[in-house]
Design a protein around this nucleic acid. Structure first.
Lengths: 230, 230
DNA sequence: TACCTAATTTAGGTATACCTAAATAGCAAT
DNA sequence: ATTGCTATTTAGGTATACCTAAATTAGGTA
């Protein structure tokens, strides 16, 4: 046994399911399918079904589940998911600011530690960092009360014409991609002049005040959020 | 599945078995019985037997096990155990020095995190702390190479007559005890004047330059190491 | 030496979180 | 309304790490 008595469910694995539901549900918290969860989590769809049923049947259900209709988070599930995301982003910020990690390494370490730090640890690093609102990748850090401030920005892949944008955030999921973006100057706060492109063909952008043009694939463009202007 | 393929064994649980064997074996690395391990780890003796057999049968055995004769660490087992102890003590030092934890809280947090930090994390906090040799409880921190510097000191419970001693280390296992010792001034580096006592009856000591006498139970005296003089 | 007791091990079970393969349900197009 | 495909679920298994209860073994004592 490891998770405690029924209803008091908590484990690394469960945390990851909740985070995945949160993230795949998007800002409108739409229902999320087993298949997309399976893909995101790297497990078989059958495993997802099983886990969802358990999460829904817990004394304090963490998800609302209906056969064949996907899931969404319950209030308790959302609370936990946001807590874990807060942990993750605070840890990333801490590793970057205090321990001088290279930016592309913070995600992996945070991904492991986020499940195991105490309230006290969370509170202490937050204090040490001056209660930051944004992590090193430009993502907002949920508050202690479990609110995640929304920010209006668009995915670069949705940009249609030419124009100037400022990078709001860059996904941390792929370290290699991060390293390349870093190398071409596409980092949080950078100014991007989109020269031409589309989601299908990729983009040509000029970064800052021009070290030449940079090619951004459509796939990569989906991992970058920008705000208009600059 | 969680531990990886046979021989590549690693888990929180295994770490704890190895640490327990290291600590119960003492500096001479004597064989350790299943019963004492069971007691230390808070599991049934049968569970210990099972785990020891697995650890001994792994592709890279972590313990040397002989039925009915207890176990000792193999070279690989000792390496891992010392790595975890190094993690533990570096984390404690870090929490105390950098995150201003109260001393009696560092152990619990370190006990959880020690299993999950990366080489990089270990290296970064060590650097931040100036490669400390001693943790906040006075225990030596194993080196990166897996050496644990021995220090000559005796357990307070072995002190026979009166005399003056300096506190070398205090066990961190029991937070409540630590708090009490802290309160009566029995902390690392403190001077103890032993007035009378024995392991059986407990000790009466004067701390620093006398805020009155303090009673130390025999049990507590087993958790304090001292060096002669002062 | 035969016995006894305590320590240890074996045997058989539980829960978690995963898997594969087989069944079923939803839904769109004929 | 039937077909057919895909998504999803059910059924049955694996490994880990624990448990209890029932052997067994070691080692001292009569």
């Amino acid at each position: 046994m490891a998770a405690g008595r029924r209803g008091d469910v908590h484990s690394e694995s469960i945390d990851n399911y909740l985070k995945a539901v949160l993230s795949l549900g998007g800002p409108e918290e739409q229902r999320v399918t087993s298949t997309s969860l399976a893909e995101r989590l790297g497990v078989a769809p059958a495993s997802v079904t099983n886990m969802l049923q358990k999460l829904a049947a817990a004394e304090t259900p963490l998800v609302e589940y209906e056969r064949h209709k996907g899931v969404r988070l319950s209030a308790a599930g959302r609370r936990r998911a946001l807590e874990v995301v807060r942990h993750h982003r605070l840890i990333e910020t801490f590793l970057y600011e205090v321990l001088d990690y290279p930016i592309e390494e913070v995600h992996e370490e945070a991904e492991r530690l986020e499940h195991f730090i105490s309230e006290r640890f969370e509170e202490r690093i937050a204090a040490k960092l001056g209660h930051p609102k944004i992590d090193p990748h430009g993502h907002s850090i949920p508050t202690m009360e479990g609110e995640m401030p929304r920010r209006e920005s668009i995915v670069l892949a949705e940009v249609m014409g030419v124009g100037t944008y400022v990078v709001e955030s860059v996904s941390d999921r792929d370290a290699e991609r991060l390293r390349q973006l870093e190398a071409s100057g596409i980092t949080v706060g950078a100014r991007l002049e989109v020269r031409r492109g589309s989601a299908a063909e990729g983009y040509t952008v000029r970064v800052g005040r021009g070290l030449g043009d940079v090619e951004v694939s459509g796939e990569t463009a989906r991992e970058i959020r920008v705000v208009v202007g600059g």
